[in-house]
Design a protein around this nucleic acid. Sequence first.
DNA 1: TCTTTACATTCCAGTAACTGGAGACTTTAT
DNA 2: ATAAAGTCTCCAGTTACTGGAATGTAAAGA
Lengths: 128, 128
Amino acid sequence: MNISQAAKLSGLSVKTVRYYADIKMVEPARNIQSGYRSYTNDDVAKLNFIGKARRFNFSIEECRELLSLYQDKNRSSKEVKKLTLAKIASIDEKLKEFHSLRDELSHLVNCCNGDDRPSCPILDELSK
Amino acid sequence: MNISQAAKLSGLSVKTVRYYADIKMVEPARNIQSGYRSYTNDDVAKLNFIGKARRFNFSIEECRELLSLYQDKNRSSKEVKKLTLAKIASIDEKLKEFHSLRDELSHLVNCCNGDDRPSCPILDELSK
DNA sequence: TCTTTACATTCCAGTAACTGGAGACTTTAT
DNA sequence: ATAAAGTCTCCAGTTACTGGAATGTAAAGA
């Protein structure tokens, strides 16, 4: 199938699918006459896999790793679990950061009248 | 003072301070002989302000806005509060995303034996 | 004074993961 | 035959810096 159908089936944009070909993540065959990329169902399965992993916040390089584990019938589940645990840990860090950010900001907002006068505890805090 | 002291006092890197000059956020005077950037205490205060706002996850453009409010003695606190509330809302969205991501991933991890055998519920889920 | 060292300048490239657009070619529909 | 839709490659832009090269200036030591 052509790229637009592969994109539709995998839920990715044509640009993204072409990008994944460029970076050698999913390299389809080529139609010799037209030069058009020609995707198989297997290619689409890989695109799907990548799309899902990306939505799980795995980076492109991590996706590459997961993909090669996915295609290796002899891999151990230990390796996959390790990658996933690391991903969870990094998400936990981000969560912590964002939580404390949120707390500080909402504290500032609560202190601010939000009226037409210039006095503003938020700016006061930022300038300290 | 020269750029390295301004950097030190504001807790930013020299590169970053120079970058803020390039994008016209904090434009110091120049020493005519040497061409060196020459920072005042006021400039450092602005750098500080920006550094803090960045740590609060405000984008450069938002910092620009906050900075002009900060320098406008007649601004209303309403405007600042509005920006900050929008920032909190966007942080809340990210928090929600990361929370559900975390939950899904940790569910998968719990299902995975993590042994030397190839069977892996994580990859199974990604390939669905 | 000379030299070394530290600090400063500009400019270019790279980061992550795409996205948008131009110009050209192929396929499909009318 | 022509027009529209789909595809191709290549280049630039996004965010907020960071690293490095080549070059110039200032301060400190011999």
